[in-house]
Write a protein that binds this DNA or RNA. Structure first.
Lengths: 121, 121
DNA sequence: ATGCATAGTTACCTCCAAGTAAGTAGTTAC
DNA sequence: GTAACTACTTACTTGGAGGTAACTATGCAT
């Protein structure tokens, strides 16, 4: 999907504030994109709550549960209760949620590069 | 620049937490990407402080100054004092700062689309 | 000397994202 | 009956992002 970039100084160039704000409000927190990326690393329906809690260093059960709930409400992940003993719950990205992967990877790559740039001070 | 996406479940797929965290810490706030996008809409060296303050609805002088300072420290924008009366200050994206434009636009586009998805509930 | 412009700064306040720690609930295993 | 597993939930707390409003500095105009 190629997005046409408006020309500089053209009237339509003035950014749509609300759209970017919406994204930042939903995704700008500390954990959501991290969670998305971690789920994306497993085949569908194979990412368990406990596994995420262990893999994502520093996250607490409370935050993970809260963030996953928000992601589910926003149709980015699905939550499936499995018939195992003890009960397990798996999380998977929706097709729509997968549209976040390139964005998250770009940000990740940018952050990786940024370390170098800043160290070169 | 095409970034190779690691295969699912491969060991290197486990996301580099720190890189994404760095990006989110720097750019995840309410204003920085908005400012970047607004500056990108003007030819180099033509974006004044007051202009940004007026264009970016809701931002205060304090926040704008603070965010611009952080962006400057991170080599994303340059600050130039102009010999006008009264003195004006212009901000411009560095070449490096421009690497954020596609990311900001993608997020913006994603937010625009997200509104539709969520309204379709 | 008062007002207006640009480009901030300073002091104070508020709220919430995020952290910590402990508890709940269902089930199995011994 | 108690320990252990998964998947949360609840109560309490705190740092800092962000908001508001007033103030500073400099120069020009009238």
């Amino acid at each position: 999907m190629h997005i046409k970039r408006p020309e500089k100084t053209s009237p339509e160039c003035i950014p749509n504030l609300l759209a970017l704000r919406d994204s930042l409000e939903l995704l700008g927190g500390k954990w959501k994109l991290l969670i998305v990326l971690h789920i994306s690393c497993r085949p569908k329906e194979l990412q368990h709550f406990k596994k995420l809690e262990k893999e994502i260093t520093g996250i607490s059960a409370k935050m993970l549960a809260k963030e996953l709930k928000t992601l589910e409400e926003n149709k980015i992940v699905t939550r499936t209760i499995q018939n195992t003993r003890p009960v397990t719950v798996t999380y998977a990205l929706t097709a729509y949620g997968e549209s976040l992967i390139p964005i998250a990877r770009d940000l990740q790559q940018w952050g990786l590069n940024h370390r170098k740039i800043i160290k070169e001070k």
